[in-house]
């Protein structure tokens, strides 16, 4: 440390090397430069390593919802989808839940069942025609709009397409 007087040495032991002490300031500065450089480089690389690939956007995939014939107009259909996806260094089967509805048998709406509040899965209650989230008591109408409870935004609507009579959604 700078400006700290060194304790006197026991004469029997010897004496401080005055010549070497002249370089003390310089050595102190060198220590701080070398040490902070090493720490900054190590910590910086470590942080980048830890962030890893976590900020890469999720790859969207088309998942099969079902044949359009199986989706009766007017009623809400819960669909559990599965897809093969890369999870870090593994390729795994991922699953999830969506709700699909059509009013006229021509245009289809698919909702991600994930609550827009904190990510629990909502359930469709046919009697009241609402989506209910069991976690923090949230309700959404059949359009996915918030009726009550804490969610800040509607249920997420997924992009859809129909190919050969099969409904697909982009999740």
């Amino acid at each position: 440390m700078r400006n700290v007087n060194l304790p006197p040495l026991d004469p029997d032991k010897g004496e401080w090397d005055e010549k070497a002490l002249n370089r003390r300031r310089f050595l102190e500065a060198s220590f701080w430069v070398a040490a902070s450089g090493g720490v900054i480089a190590t910590v910086g690389a470590g942080i980048r390593f830890l962030i890893g690939n976590s900020l890469e956007p999720k790859k969207e995939s088309w998942v099969e919802i079902g044949s359009t014939e199986s989706l009766t107009p007017g009623s809400m259909h819960r669909v559990r989808y599965r897809l093969r996806a890369k999870d870090a260094w593994r390729t795994v089967e991922q699953s999830g839940a969506v709700y699909a509805i059509t009013e006229d048998g021509e245009s289809y709406t698919v909702f991600d069942a994930t609550c827009s509040h904190l990510g629990c899965l909502v359930r469709w209650q046919e009697g009241d025609r609402v989506f209910a989230c069991p976690c923090h008591k949230a309700y959404f109408d059949h359009q996915g709009q918030v009726l009550s409870g804490p969610p800040p935004k509607p249920l997420r609507r997924l992009e859809t397409k129909i190919e050969n009579g099969v409904l697909w959604a982009l999740i």
Partner: peptide
């Protein structure tokens, strides 16, 4: 950004667990 850092990606999976 924070959530992704915590999970190690956008979804919960292997990276989250490790």
């Amino acid at each position: 950004w924070l959530a992704s850092l915590m999970r190690g990606g956008e979804v919960l999976g292997q990276a989250t667990l490790t």
